[in-house]
Write a protein that binds this DNA or RNA. Structure first.
Length: 296
DNA sequence: CGCGTTTGACCGGCGC
DNA sequence: GCGCCGGTCAAACGCG
């Protein structure tokens, strides 16, 4: 996917922000000279804000491009390492599958241990030809206020069908099926991490054969107001297959990206002023629209 | 009353 | 063959 092409990186900062910046009081009756001076001042301010807008736009475009590049690199890296991992023996795999050792594991080849479907791979020598469900593992942080929570909010609806305490981890493991089952074969195992109880490890088996329930039916307008939403949500334009494969990396990158961008932007006083102006400008624009509608 | 969750029982794979 | 263990089933239960 081309991340940058989906975003209108214009922050729309110059939509009537000046009056609000200059004066909070409602506009008064002015003389012609003061109006003229104010117009000139507004024009300068408009130029300045436009320049800032342009600069921010460039910054965002660069960041989006970097994000796309890094994401592609990570995808390549994980794919190659998974291929290598598939060559490891069953025993070795069991040992290395300790959930605490990895942050995010995506396994497109489905080399994980899944024997419950009755297709015993150990009895069939040509196991590389057996189609196994895709297995991916995702870490997610739970609500700190709810210590017993084994809920991973991934947008899909799940039905819990079992819970078990496993040997390697004192916290129980919960078993979920997609609520679209038996039509949808996807299963999910959720268990808290041994090392950090605030982190739950969700292991997904299979692929959803239905649209994402929380996914909007069509792409939202790419305005500045939707910018952060775009960065924190999965891209609605990427295919379902890509969505499944990229989801774990995407979450981590989005989290990092949003945090980094937020900290960078909040340190910039110019950005704060511009943001305030943009928001105020929006309000003013809305008020103007309402007034116009009322007048009509 | 319907639906989702809980939980003990059961099943099958795997190692010894 | 036996025991351990992970995964699944299904009856009981709770909630809206």
């Amino acid at each position: 996917m081309e991340f940058t092409s989906l975003l209108n990186t214009s922050l729309d900062l110059n939509s009537k922000p000046i009056r609000v910046l200059l004066n909070d009081a409602p506009p008064k009756q002015e003389t012609r000279e003061s109006n003229f001076m104010e117009l000139g001042f507004e024009r300068n301010e408009l130029k300045r804000v436009s320049a800032e807008n342009k600069k921010l736009t460039e910054m965002l475009t660069n960041m989006c491009e970097n994000y796309t590049q890094l994401r592609n690199q990570l995808l390549e890296y994980t794919t190659s390492s998974n291929t290598a991992a598939a060559a490891i023996s069953n025993k070795r795999r069991k040992a290395s599958a300790a959930e605490s050792s990895a942050i995010i594991i995506n396994n497109p080849s489905g080399s994980g241990s899944s024997s419950s479907d009755g297709e015993d791979s150990s009895k069939k020598p040509r196991e590389e030809h057996i189609i196994k469900p895709k297995i991916s593992r995702v870490l997610s942080r739970t609500d700190p206020s709810d210590h017993n929570s084994l809920i991973v909010k991934d947008g899909y609806q799940w039905r819990k069908y079992g819970q078990k305490v496993t040997r390697d981890n004192p916290s129980p493991r919960a078993y979920f099926k997609c609520s679209f089952a038996p039509t949808c074969p996807v299963k999910k195992k959720v268990q808290k991490s041994i090392e950090d109880q605030s982190i739950v490890v969700a292991t997904y088996e299979g692929e959803h054969n239905h649209p994402h329930p929380s996914k909007p039916p069509h792409e939202p307008p790419a305005t500045s107001a939707n910018l952060l939403r775009c960065l924190t949500k999965p891209n609605p334009q990427i295919t379902h297959q890509e969505d499944q494969e990229a989801k774990p990396q995407q979450h981590q990158f989005q989290h990092f990206f949003v945090e980094h961008m937020a900290s960078t932007l909040t340190k910039d006083p110019n950005f704060k002023a511009a943001l305030a102006a943009a928001i105020s400008g929006k309000f003013l624009q809305q008020n103007n629209n309402n007034t116009t509608e009322n007048n009509c």
